[in-house]
Design a protein around this nucleic acid. Structure first.
Lengths: 222, 222, 222, 222
DNA sequence: AATGAATGAGGCTTCATTCAT
DNA sequence: GATGAATGAAGCCTCATTCAT
């Protein structure tokens, strides 16, 4: 984890040599406020259609003020992107750490990623889809330095691969290719979120979640 | 001759019956040419970053000429989108119709969608991801009338649900919820394509395809 | 009169020395056809909003064909403009020549210009207003060479001034400034046509025509 | 300082109560500045030929700045149009209110509308003609909502009809149709302005003004 | 530090005119 | 002669970013 969020709150020094930390903390707080406002707007209008003035209004500040905290629109996007995935990763790590049972971990993983996630933070799913779309689009441009979809997915795959390896070692799962299986599990989750984004009414997340877990476990258990 | 298409059904007659000499251009063919040029550019720069002038240059025509064939940038996008999914659907239908065995059908479905598809039309995957991203982004705007992601996904789900129902009836698959399972199968394919788009080197499509099919069949067979 | 319409139908010669008049007549005829088609469209859409393709369609010919007969859109406009005023001038001259009585002449002038004119060629009024508007707008541009609003108005004033002078000589009218009075009479007619163009329902041409003539005669009679 | 207007009521407060330093620009004043610049250009090039960049240059600002004050080119036109007629109406009302004598009122009306008006604001006449031409052309389009030539003329007719009715009641004018006469009086003024616009040298406004008033009074007095 | 007025590069689209057939 | 496909100059407008206050 690159530590995008919990990062360099450097302690500054004024001309007279005294330490001045508070100001910098304030800056960080306000930056996060703007970020949250931006995410709010992103989820409503999509990244491309979101204008700087929209973000400013949502944050209750002036348009120019944004540039005190971010270099560009792209940077806002990138930081929001990273903030979101940091949240998700943290949430997942927490839930998974609640048990030692690999099957249980997978169950939680799917449940949290789909059911809980959608029910409690539906908006987030929309933003994620949008970030994701934007991430794809920008895979060959400058933003590549700011948002690293590749790294994020690698990390997710690693987490899941670990669970699977653990399950295999414990004799719960059969000896599958954990790298591929990890990719597949992430794929299903992403794919379902996508379909849900397209039409929230047709996709019955509860049923799908259940069927997915059943099939998965049936498919990989020893 | 900037690649005009010459064909034989072009000699028109004016009101007085005299032969006239209209330019020998099949509008439909040229339209398709432009569409292919556009898709080429889309796959390289992404839809949003593709400018009309880019499409024009790629098609070897003038900027204004595009508007002889398309009303707007959005229309080009929508038609390219539909063209692509028409191709995919046709391809899938063809392959699936080659056998009566539901298991075999699923195998082909996955293989074509992933392995074959990527190997033989890698660019298409990139465009599809991009279209898809764009489709999500525009789900609440005017484009909704031109590209209907919702309908396309419904059709895909239907095709797969039919295979599954057939398998259940034939006693090959256990009695799963076919709607959910269909959504899940599509989800995996989409999700894997996504990861592949993000990093083509890490995702081993052959392995994944195999693991996916194994797990799926293991998971749903009676 | 510059003779815009009745002009140089030159007799051409082909390579072998034989006279070939017919072709040239045809050209003139077709040119006039296009002109009439153009005027039709002008009256419906206004000059600026009329596109070459509109004129072509109205004339039942191809877009490019227009350029066989006219150098530019502006030339079409100018020739249509002149054609129209030539018609009007001819009509007026005809009517006025029907009597020797100056009062009668003024009566006819007003009646033809307003009542008859509007009743029988309402469309023409619209075009005229539009031509006129366009003439004003282009008073400082190239078109000045093609349409000469200035000359046309001078000619109109001359016709009316002659009637007035005649009336003064005959002891029917008092000794007014005929130049000014001529300008005024034209002004009323133009101004009423304008108001009629703006709202055809409110302006009662019959009443106005009557009141105008009464007031005028009352105002200038000896 | 490109001609910013500085005034004293500009110190704003943000949510937290701190003073902020907004640019010292009175939006309304600047809007009017742009409007005047636009009218300047309109009078020189005509409305249609006036481009946004022309207006920007004339106002000494950037192209984009215009859009901070006006939604579109059409809106600039409409507001300039209304501003102009507001000026005229105000001027007329002022002058007419200076006396109770209907004859005197008509005299002033004509004199102001022609002589004074032209002498002191010659440019305005050109713009008015142009606005007017544009108003005619756009009588069937969207602009109808912004500039209402119809309503403006109705108001003018009403003002004049009132004067005439007053004169008739006072036994100064004979019992003419006031509606028609009002239309006619406006018509003469418009028509004379038109001819003056076409050729400023030939039209002797002083003489015409005098002749017009004489003839009118002669024509309508009891 | 905060602001929003100002800006101009850049994009889409229109349409008069050209020209190969 | 007739045609309409092709074109690109030109125009309106958007919006991220700058910067004076």
């Amino acid at each position: 984890m690159k530590g995008y969020i919990i990062n360099d709150r450097r302690v500054g020094h004024n001309k007279k040599g005294f330490k001045v930390a508070p100001k910098i903390v304030d800056k960080q707080v306000k930056k996060t406020e703007i970020l949250h406002a931006a995410m709010q707007v992103f989820s409503q209008k999509g990244v491309v259609k979101t204008k700087m003035i929209d973000v400013a209004k949502a944050a209750g500040i002036g348009k120019g003020t944004i540039y005190e905290y971010f270099r560009s629109k792209e940077e806002i996007f990138a930081e929001a992107f990273n903030l979101m995935f940091f949240h998700i990763e943290t949430q997942l790590a927490d839930l998974i750490s609640g048990t030692d049972n690999p099957t249980e971990k997978l169950h939680k993983l799917i449940e949290v990623s789909l059911k809980e996630f959608l029910e409690h933070s539906g908006d987030m799913a929309s933003i994620m889809m949008d970030f994701w779309a934007e991430g794809i689009r920008n895979k060959d441009t400058d933003v590549i330095n700011l948002i690293n979809l590749e790294q994020i997915y690698s990390e997710f795959r690693l987490i899941i691969a670990d669970i699977l390896s653990d399950g295999i070692n414990k004799g719960v799962f059969r000896n599958i290719d954990v790298q591929s299986m990890a990719a597949i599990i992430i794929a299903v989750i992403d794919g379902v979120l996508l379909q849900w984004t397209i039409n929230k009414n047709i996709i019955d997340i509860n049923k799908i979640s259940e069927v997915m877990f059943d099939t998965l476990i049936n498919g990989i258990r020893l």
